[in-house]
């Protein structure tokens, strides 16, 4: 049996999984920033109960396997709170995002704490409120410091997104498994999928590094962390 023509036949279908996989990844990264940044601020500047709450959240989401989190939310928590109608894709993206927020919050926290204390003192001495100082002086610096570490979350989330297969999200790995079932061709299909993941992985990282270079400021950035 000649494998190559079959592989080429199925390639468009295989590639259709890319958009779904990237959708999961970007939703998760976005949610991760949206939740992770405020969580980091809460952990650094918040009152004790807030710091505690964030600490427990981080401990919970970082302590559990992604598979268990997906099962817990897909089969358990979401149906139990009346969100059983959500699609597997949405649940997958949300769970990856909630977990991403736990990891990313710690990257942002480290970055915020690494901004020297003098920056806040100088900002306050000019009459800025604490809020303005955080927003206009601390955060712009912290985000730049955090970016290299944050970029490294991309490959982690990308490879973890494949676990969404377990709750039936139609992403790259699910489509791969389907093609394998249909064609009974295994290794070439798997390797093709692996190739796509590798391209997405390192290609995406390259783009992120380019972004880092773009917003680089003299005396600042990738070397800082």
């Amino acid at each position: 049996m000649d494998v190559l023509p079959i592989l080429i036949d199925w390639l468009p279908y295989l590639l259709s999984g890319v958009s779904s996989t990237l959708g999961l990844v970007f939703a998760a990264l976005g949610l991760g920033v949206l939740l992770g940044l405020p969580m980091a601020l809460g952990q650094v500047y918040g009152a004790r109960p807030i710091r505690w709450a964030v600490g427990i959240y981080v401990w919970f989401f970082r302590g559990l396997p992604i598979l268990i989190l997906l099962f817990l939310f897909w089969f358990g928590i979401f149906p139990a709170i009346g969100l059983g109608h959500l699609s597997a894709f949405v649940v997958g993206a949300v769970v990856l995002g909630l977990r991403g927020a736990a990891y990313q919050s710690q990257i942002f926290r480290g970055a915020i704490q690494s901004v020297s204390e003098g920056q806040m003192i100088a900002a306050r001495s000019l009459g800025m409120s604490r809020f303005t100082a955080i927003r206009s002086v601390i955060l712009p610096q912290a985000v730049r410091i955090a970016l290299p570490g944050w970029s490294n979350e991309y490959p982690n989330i990308l490879t973890d997104s494949a676990v969404c297969y377990a709750i039936g999200v139609v992403e790259l790995l699910t489509i791969t498994a389907r093609i394998v079932t249909q064609t009974h061709i295994t290794i070439p299909i798997y390797l093709a999928a692996a190739g796509i993941f590798i391209v997405l992985n390192y290609g995406g990282l390259k783009l992120l590094h380019r972004l880092e270079a773009k917003i680089e400021i003299p005396g600042f950035g990738s070397g800082a962390m």
């Binding site: 003098g118 920056q119 100088a122 900002a123 001495s125 610096q141 400021i217 005396g219 600042f220």
Partner: peptide, 14 residues
């Protein structure tokens, strides 16, 4: 209305 200048400048590095 009370300006301040610091030993280590504390310029905003970004």
């Amino acid at each position: 209305k009370i300006g301040m200048v610091f030993q280590n400048f504390f310029l905003f590095d970004h």
